Computed example of a mutant assay.
Amino acid sequence: MAGLADIIACDSTICSIEDGVLRYRGYAIEELAEHASFEEVIYLLWYGRLPNCHELKALKQDLAENAALPPRIYDLLRMYAPWGNAMAKLRTCLSFLTHFDDEVMDHSFAADHRKAVRIMARMAAIVAAIERIRSGREPVDPATIRTQSLAELFLWLLAGEKPEPVAVKAMDKCLVLHAEHELNASTFAARVTVSTMSDTYSGMVSAIGTLKGALHGNANEQVALMLEEIGDVDRVEAYIDGKIADGGLIMGFGHRVYKNGDPRARVLKELARELGEWRQDTRWYDMAVKVAGLVREKKGLLPNVDFYSAVVYTYLGIPRDLFTLVFAISRTSGWLAHIMEQHENNRLIRPRANYTGKGAGTWLPLADR
């Protein structure tokens, strides 16, 4: 089937999408977004249950203690041109971290979880360093920041100052919403890679490289570009009518799995409204709501997770070309959960292809061709 649509490729206990309901380990995404911190979700994805207070404290401490980057990572980032592709930088930095981990080829349960902590802890620091170095600012050392929230750490490292609580709450909720999504393209790529008994870092590099593709990871960036091009709520209808007339693609709508709407989009819509009011500038939110209404009316399509996340990230002051990297920070938790699950009960992933080429041929000597 084209794109392996509806093909079951493996068994997993991590995430389910059934009848339009997204669940992490049995917990509905709406409930997690309302009540859980990102760190609780990390624990849930990795260990199969929610942590108690002592387990959560220990995980937060482990993440905080492992957030500092090897200085050579900063040296590597300074080698790049400022305009270089941010996702490519993230991919290379993650690969480079392999050389600073002496447990790379240890696939035991304990080693896998120690590596997961180290990778998860450093993702926010890498993304923030990419932005600060390319804009001519010194990166902030995570060791100088007193926080055990990855959401607060990321915003602090990015801006160089302590973020507002409302921004931290919104960032944390975004990380929860994007943490895991069953066997999407990047997760599948990670599982295929580690099924060969390659290392965790190689699996992560495969996932990041797959997320970099325009059909998977950067749709929210394209949504922001669209809203920026529209510019004002009064121009929305003319813009959408023009796109439809020209047969153009309107990013951020429709989903291969969700036929009755993406549950994450509904949470993000409310989050976008709250941030617009906090910023005292609802223009982006108002444009998005009007676009969504018109696309539903005229094309019968509903927003997916990328649509309102573009508005949320804009209100949080995150540069547009970092949107997919922020997605990667969150999805790292899910990627690592799948990598560890693959290692626990591994079988090489080796599907077959349906051959549609020419039939049997007859060999001719070179002189007779």
Rank of each mutant, 00 (worst) to 15 (best):
G84I: 07
V236H: 03
F188W: 14
D232W: 11
S135L: 10
D286W: 01
D199V: 04
M123E: 04
W335D: 02
V166P: 10
A143M: 00
M87H: 10
R134Q: 14
I339E: 01
L22Q: 02
L364A: 13
W46N: 04
L175P: 09
R49C: 14
L364H: 13
E138F: 06
T314M: 02
H99A: 15
R25K: 14
A337E: 01
G213A: 13
R279I: 00
N52F: 13
G231H: 09
I29W: 01
A5F: 11
A33R: 03
D246M: 10
A353N: 07
E182M: 08
A328F: 06
L76M: 14
L153W: 03
T98S: 15
L77V: 13
P139H: 02
A67Y: 05
A224R: 15
V168M: 00
G300E: 05
A129P: 08
A219Q: 11
K173A: 11
E31N: 13
A151K: 04
G84K: 06
L366G: 01
L325Q: 11
Y355A: 07
G20K: 07
S16Q: 05
H107P: 03
K290H: 12
A159W: 07
V194K: 03
E229F: 05
D286N: 11
L157V: 03
G3F: 05
R49I: 00
R132L: 03
C10L: 06
A68V: 10
A167F: 12
V194M: 09
A81D: 13
K173V: 12
T362M: 09
D368H: 05
H216E: 03
K298S: 00
M123F: 14
G252T: 14
R320H: 06
P319M: 13
Q280W: 00
I329E: 02
H54F: 12
Y239C: 12
A68L: 05
A265N: 04
S186R: 12
L4R: 15
R352C: 00
D241H: 12
M1C: 10
K358S: 13
G20D: 09
N354Y: 08
G276S: 10
V140H: 10
A81L: 12
D286R: 08
T98A: 07
D281G: 10
R283N: 04
V289Q: 06
H216C: 03
M105H: 14
A159T: 11
P263E: 09
H338A: 08
F100K: 01
E277A: 08
D102F: 02
Y355T: 13
E40V: 12
A28R: 13
E344I: 03
W156C: 04
D368P: 01
D246C: 07
Q342L: 10
A337K: 04
R146I: 07
A159S: 13
A2D: 13
N346P: 12
A214N: 06
A167G: 06
D106K: 05
V21F: 06
R137N: 06
G20Q: 06
C93E: 04
I349N: 08
I244C: 01
F109C: 14
K57D: 02
T356I: 11
G359S: 09
F307K: 06
E161I: 01
E40H: 02
S198Q: 10
R114A: 00
I42D: 02
R49T: 10
R320M: 03
A272H: 07
Y24R: 02
E344H: 07
S330C: 13
G203I: 00
E138L: 10
T362E: 15
S195Q: 02
R256H: 13
V236Y: 00
